[in-house]
Write a protein that binds this DNA or RNA. Structure first.
Length: 739
DNA sequence: ATGTTTATTATTTTT
DNA sequence: TAATAAACAT
């Protein structure tokens, strides 16, 4: 392996610094993944470290997969024994291996966000709290925050300071009890319980620490306190901990990620080597300069400067659109043009946005124009109702003590078990501290065993007995087959297939989704019985990443800024460059949050390799309401000399009738119009945002100004009733107004 | 007990 | 706007 031909000197230093703690601060596009891949290859090939003694932690499952592939490529052959995955996946594996020592059922299930919300709701009710006054989601977030900082319910009692904390405290205890009774762990538990296990059990700690001679953590800036503690514990013995991160790309503080971990690292491992990777290989000089200007405004950041030897490339295009439809239309037009005239492929392009809701308008435009696109993770596959229902059957079959999932399907399709009966059953089970499933089992026992009965009607009892039989049947089936076959049986025996087909008009589509789940399940057909089921459930719980489901080749990617972390595209559009959106309205009050918004913008900009578009809409419909938004403050920080107006005439029409305009623009008409567009004539007379005055319409703000034939067309938003008008420069009585 | 209609309400990012 | 809960009718 001749490293000097593959890597620059700093990268080589990071690869070869294998003894002792190392912190690699790696800017965007600085070859970070490359460094990790070669570092692992170097450990295995040159240092003779067995792959089984290496642990590499990534931020997403997808990243783990890709990294494994690249390592396999470099080393030739599959490195099966390498421990590689997210903190959560690795945590789950450790906890199953050492379930006994951790005091867990080795068949524990993993609760996702939705399950958690259900548990919180139930806990709120149990605690007698009005769940209208305290949103379950807020409480869930508070509990999760406490857990990821390793605060137990008992410790929480000490820090409660207001009424909300008081409520959280009351619910937190109850929440943990419900999880335990359900033999379930939530996401945070997958980390927290590992830490507790390692801290509390010297024997297990020794074994784990002995095994992992080298530990790597990627995206270190986005780890939380518990995760860092877990990594530190595992690496404590050999002290070969290498963390790779970039404080400027920390964008998950809302999930309790804490950049301070980087500072803690240098404190906990004095004398750690610090290596900086600052040369960017990804983007044009223009993009790097602009991104650097934007991020430089943050006060709370390390001193450093990203640089590149790449050529400057083209200016960044800043575009002002009328509204979100117009914004989408502009993007679609540009993609089309880049593909037709400039040799890009659809797959080279990506549209990035702050909120998932923004994807709608963009998606509609792509559909209307018939351009290929794929949307990453909006309505995530595993969150579809029908998929969750079928999964609930599987999960209850695997672990019948899972109350949340049992409640989900006990009456789906309806089998005569109504809310009243369930309430009564739950009260009865609660008094006895029994999971619902155990309570239902007890119903079948003779009266001396079951004691004072629940007050259920005969019909309900019979229906519950029927449900019990159903689950028992599935259980027997599960033992003798595999997950994919079990899904088939669930569909047939529970009546779910008929229920789906009968329910909506899109029942067939829903069934199609379930079949997709079956396809996923088939991956685990080499395993038999409960093992197959266990493997599927684990995968589903931890791969909330829907990236592997139905990705279209060579299509434009529609993705949130957060999800785009770690990715790169030749052409990037950032949509919604507006105050209130990016930066988001919720971050306006808090300086630290505002810095995070800026980092998010920085992350977005640095995804671009060759072309970067920053697009904003003058007005936008948000949950039914229209509002006019100021341009994002981040646009002001992009030096004007690095930007340009769009080179071609933008397609637009007056007024606010997107439907009509879309219709008019579809198909051949659009192409004709495009072909008819004329070469630019002279520099624009006005820039977007300038104040102007008109003889009859009064004062207004320029939205766009661009060439139109031999003239220029100025679009102005006027104060008051006049609204938005398109005017021709040579005719309109316009004059500048000083701000 | 279940399906239908109306009212309400909350809108960021996700392993 | 859209998703969900509550109220209502069957």
């Amino acid at each position: 392996m001749e490293l000097s031909t593959l890597l620059n000197p700093s990268q080589i230093e990071a690869v070869q610094a294998v003894d002792g703690p190392v912190l690699v601060v790696a800017g965007p596009g600085s070859g970070k993944t490359r460094v990790i891949v070669y570092r692992i290859a170097y450990l295995v090939r040159t240092c003779g470290v067995r792959p089984s003694r290496i642990m590499a932690v990534t931020f997403t499952n997808k990243a783990a997969r890709e990294m494994r592939d690249r390592i396999d490529q470099v080393l030739g052959g599959a490195q099966q024994n390498l421990t590689m995955g997210t903190f959560h996946a690795i945590g789950a594996r450790l906890l199953r291996t050492y379930a006994d020592s951790a005091g867990l059922d080795p068949n524990f299930v993993i609760y996702d966000a939705d399950d958690q919300t259900q548990v919180v709701k139930r806990s709120l009710e149990d605690a007698g709290v009005d769940h209208k006054k305290f949103s379950p989601n807020a409480v869930k977030h508070a509990i999760s925050a406490a857990k990821s900082q390793m605060v137990t319910p008992a410790e929480f009692a000490g820090r409660k300071s207001n009424y909300f904390d008081e409520i959280v405290h009351r619910v937190y205890d109850r929440y943990e009890a419900v999880l335990e009774q359900s033999h379930a762990l939530d996401f945070d538990d997958l980390i927290v319980r590992v830490v507790r296990l390692l801290e509390g059990n010297a024997e297990v700690r020794e074994r784990v620490q002995d095994r992992y001679v080298h530990v790597l953590v990627d995206e270190f800036q986005d780890t939380n306190a518990a995760q860092y503690r877990m990594a530190r514990l595992i690496a404590e013995k050999h002290r070969n901990l290498c963390v790779v991160g970039d404080p400027d790309q920390a964008i998950y503080s809302w999930r309790q990620a804490d950049v301070a971990n980087i500072l803690n690292f240098e404190k906990d491992f004095p004398g750690a080597r610090v290596i900086h990777l600052e040369q960017n290989y990804r983007s044009t000089g223009t993009i790097i300069k602009a991104a650097d200007k934007v991020i430089a405004v943050n006060r709370n950041r390390p001193q450093r400067k990203l640089w590149t030897e790449n050529s400057d490339g083209l200016p960044i295009i800043v575009h002002d659109a009328l509204n979100e439809q117009d914004e989408a239309l502009f993007i679609v037009n540009e993609v089309d043009r880049l593909v037709k005239r400039e040799g890009f492929k659809h797959g080279d392009c990506a549209v990035l946005y702050r909120t998932n809701a923004q994807s709608r308008a963009v998606e509609e435009a792509f559909v209307r124009y018939g351009l290929p696109y794929h949307l990453v993770g909006a309505t995530r596959f595993y969150e579809r109702r029908e998929v969750k229902d079928v999964l609930a059957y599987l999960r209850v079959t695997y672990n019948p003590y899972d109350d949340v999932n049992l409640l989900r399907i006990v009456n789906v399709p309806s089998r005569g078990i109504g809310q009243k009966s369930l309430d009564e059953l739950a009260r009865w089970a609660n008094r006895r501290s029994l999971p619902l499933y155990a309570a239902i089992q007890l119903l079948g026992e003779p009266p001396e065993q079951r004691g004072e009965g629940p007050d259920l009607g005969q019909r309900a009892e019979k229906a519950l007995a029927g449900f019990l039989e159903l689950i028992r049947g599935l259980e027997a089936e599960a033992k003798g087959s595999n997950a994919a076959d079990l899904i088939k049986r669930v569909l047939a025996e529970t009546g779910y297939r008929d229920y789906l087909l009968a329910s909506d008009d899109d029942g067939e589509d829903r069934l199609e989704n379930v079949m997709e789940l079956r396809t996923v399940a088939e991956e685990f057909s080499h395993l038999r019985g409960m093992d197959s089921l266990a493997a599927l459930l684990e995968q589903v719980a931890l791969v909330a990443d829907s990236d592997n489901v139905g990705e279209k080749p060579n299509s434009t990617t529609l993705i949130t800024l957060h999800q785009a972390k770690g990715l790169e595209y030749p052409v990037v559009f950032i949509a919604g460059m507006e105050e209130g959106l990016l930066p988001h309205a919720r971050s306006m009050e808090d300086a630290a949050q505002m810095e995070e918004e800026r980092r998010l913008c920085y992350v977005g900009m640095t995804r671009a390799q060759q072309r970067l578009y920053l697009v904003r809409a003058y007005r936008r419909a948000a949950m039914g309401m229209r509002s006019a938004n100021e341009p994002s403050r981040f646009l002001r920080d992009v030096p004007p000399e690095l930007t340009a107006l769009p080179q071609r005439k933008r397609v637009q029409a007056a007024g606010f009738q997107p439907e009509m305009r879309m219709a008019a623009m579809s198909g051949a008409a659009a192409r004709d119009r495009e072909a008819a567009s004329v070469a630019p004539a002279g520099p624009p007379a006005y820039k977007a945002g300038e104040r102007v005055k008109h003889g009859t319409f009064g004062e207004g703000v320029v939205i766009t100004c661009h060439p139109s034939g031999s003239d220029q067309e100025v679009t102005v938003a006027f104060r008051g009733t006049a609204g938005v008008k398109k005017l021709l420069l040579s005719f309109a009585p316009l004059e500048r107004v000083q701000a």
